[in-house]
Amino acid sequence: MFHRLPVPDGETVSFTIDGTPAEARVGDTVAAALLVNGVPHCRTTPVSGSPRGPYCMMGVCFDCLVTIDGVGNRQACQERVAPGMRVATQMGSRELDR
């Protein structure tokens, strides 16, 4: 996965991934936060159920879709981690009301 280079101390932010507490650096996108926390994949596809992770990191590929604070199919590379944010990996299609 990914690790962080030794950089001047930044502020950290606490959030959860699938209910497990995790930490990121302020300014990290959700996708970056998932990668540095060793999450193997963000979701499985609605078509074949195959696993996917971040690919383009610029909002064009839609492979890093996750559920953020209860709302499904959010682009993890386009959202910043916020304190207390609840990030959940997704299985297949999004559910209504999620």
Binding site: F2, R4, V7, Y55, C56, M57
Partner: peptide, 18 residues
């Protein structure tokens, strides 16, 4: 991933691959 994607992770979050 794309190399550009990895570079974005480097620039914005100082993240590099294991």
């Amino acid at each position: 991933m794309g190399a550009g994607a990895a570079q974005t992770l480097l620039k914005t979050s100082a993240l590099v691959p294991d």
